[in-house]
Nucleic acid binder design. Structure first.
Lengths: 341, 341
DNA sequence: TTGTATGCGTTATCAT
DNA sequence: ATGATAACGCATACAA
């Protein structure tokens, strides 16, 4: 029969050779690797052994053709708002996300955020070029997001879309983290916390913190920096720290802002942590080595990235998606809020 | 015949439908799209028209299976050396590179730089998981680079490998740019330029500048910052600017270092550009809006990224690769070196 | 629980 | 200059 003639050639083993070695049909081999139907444990073992012996790996390309999937994901990263979030969040997120994707056979194509290269979206969405999209810190009103919503392409966000809420996302419990931050400042003896973020809150993280802060400390001041940069943070802080009723603690939504606050305080001769507590969301890898080390919320970008890929894969494989996923974050208290204890 | 039964279904058009509409065989349609053999111009037009009418796009997955290629590229970005080069170089590079890749049907998989996730390299190189690798600012001694060299996988670098030199790369003419920078400082009336970079020069850009600077100004001082950060730049500059024989101009190899120099000068009460000229390599998008705006070498990351993909594609398509590619860079004189005129 | 046979949409080989 | 047809390596509907 035709099958017997196959796979005799040199090169990598195919499903036919594995089937032969294991004494089963290619169907069984296929199912052992896809997990899509029950296989007798003994048979499964034989197949795995044969596969291992032959160093067999299912060809992604063949699988893609047979299933009609592309195994490619569109990935949108935030590249706007000045020199944004990319680092260090990005440099932890990307490798982890990529590793998780590689394991499952996916590769990526990038979609620029916001202003974008026009046409790219159409190129990707107009034809089945990608199976799904992954959006990192998506912003409301982003043209690609809107086109995605209009299309049937599944997508998963890291962070959430709010208007309207999207179905599949991975996020931290920011409200809870905000509460823990405020409690921490409380315990450390700070009584007049302020909040420093951006004027607009187009990412869900910013919205969450703003909301939570407003609910927990309705009387506390909320300040805005022009962008996520040390310079902008310094400029904003210089202003509000130079007033008689200045706050005795600041929570920022980006580590660069926090670094700016530190600089402003130093320039103004305000001691950290004695006269001012500083805490930030994210930037863990950086602020841990700042002077002084800054208290922060560690967002664990790596595990968040892995979870995103898991959700995408579940979605595309027809497995029950876990629905929204809340990944744990963690308060990392450091020198910058050590007024007591 | 079998063909006639194909493609009748709903969904996207296939090569069969285009062939039928154009009145040719699928072989011809295939060749029209692949360009791999001469097709009569009139026939070609008919095929293109039919394809346009049917909105036909060759399925990448089918092509991949037939050709044995994966259409996936391994992409290594530098994520070491502290909060490195990613931004803004990265945020211009990545979208442009991705767009060029999408056009040609490629997608990406990431390889973390240096310390890496162990195993990832083997996963990608052990089987034909990717067709080629793209290395951005590769560093000598990187484990992935070494494994790549040992493998047969083609790879293209943005920046060069020096030990030994690699075959396919895209780079700027840094030596020339260094000369132009020094000439510019000369004309502006600066007489004692210094060079600020990193202690080790593991990226070709750093080596090139160090070498060129050394040859053109053998007597001039060369300083090193601990890493590519504003803080490290400031620390280094504070030291060498606080000496009696201090330089009257500084060239840095990273915009963050330049920002640090600016801060140090301000802290020391040294006026820019009157008492100190500051110029940097890269970071164009950022330093153009710094205070004062900094003279810089614009590296045009976007076009460099496009060229890299072009070279990869040529390599993989069996077309004559252009060999090494030098992309133009540009001196952008700004306020920070405007001592005269 | 397992196997047979067909389809997925191209490219490539060999003809004509 | 163009065609017919066999791979490419898997998944899956249908059988058994």
């Amino acid at each position: 029969m035709a099958q017997e003639l196959r796979g005799q050639a040199e090169g990598r083993a195919t499903i036919f050779e594995v089937a032969e070695q294991a004494g089963v049909s290619i169907t069984t081999v296929s199912h052992v690797f896809s997990g899509k139907r029950r296989v007798n444990p003994a048979t499964r073992r034989r197949v795995h052994e044969a596969a291992a012996r032959l160093a067999y790996q299912p060809r992604l390309t063949a699988r893609a053709l047979a299933t009609g999937r592309t195994m490619t994901l569109a990935l949108q990263l935030p590249t706007t708002l000045g020199e944004i979030a990319l680092n260090p969040f990005f440099s932890e997120l990307l490798p982890a996300m990529s590793a998780a994707a590689i394991e499952r056979g996916y590769s990526f194509v990038f979609v620029p955020g916001q202003e974008a290269l026009p046409g790219t979206a159409e190129l990707l969405l107009g034809q089945p070029r990608v199976d799904a999209a992954v959006l990192v810190d998506p912003e409301e009103g982003d043209p690609f997001v809107e086109r995605l919503r209009a299309s049937a392409l599944p997508f998963v966000t890291l962070g959430r879309l709010l208007d309207p809420p999207n179905e599949h996302w991975v996020d931290n419990d920011h409200a809870d983290m905000c509460r823990r931050l405020l409690d921490h400042l409380d315990e450390a003896g700070y009584t007049r916390p302020a909040f420093l973020s951006l004027p607009q809150a187009r990412m869900s993280l910013l919205v969450d913190y703003l909301t939570a802060f407003g609910e927990l400390r309705p009387e506390a001041p909320v300040y805005a920096a022009a962008e996520f940069s040390e310079h902008a943070g310094c400029e904003a802080a210089t202003e509000f720290l130079d007033a008689p009723d200045r706050p005795d603690a600041v929570i920022t939504t980006h580590h660069r802002l926090a670094m700016g606050v530190v600089r402003a305080a130093r320039d103004l001769g305000i001691a950290i942590p004695a006269e001012l507590g500083v805490a930030t969301v994210g930037g863990n890898a950086v602020v841990a080595h700042a002077r002084p080390p800054l208290t922060s919320i560690n967002l664990f970008p790596a595990s968040a990235g892995e979870r995103v890929i898991e959700v995408v894969d579940a979605l595309l494989s027809g497995r029950p998606a876990d629905g929204p996923v809340l990944v744990p974050a963690e308060l990392a208290p450091r020198e910058s809020t050590r007024r007591r204890g």
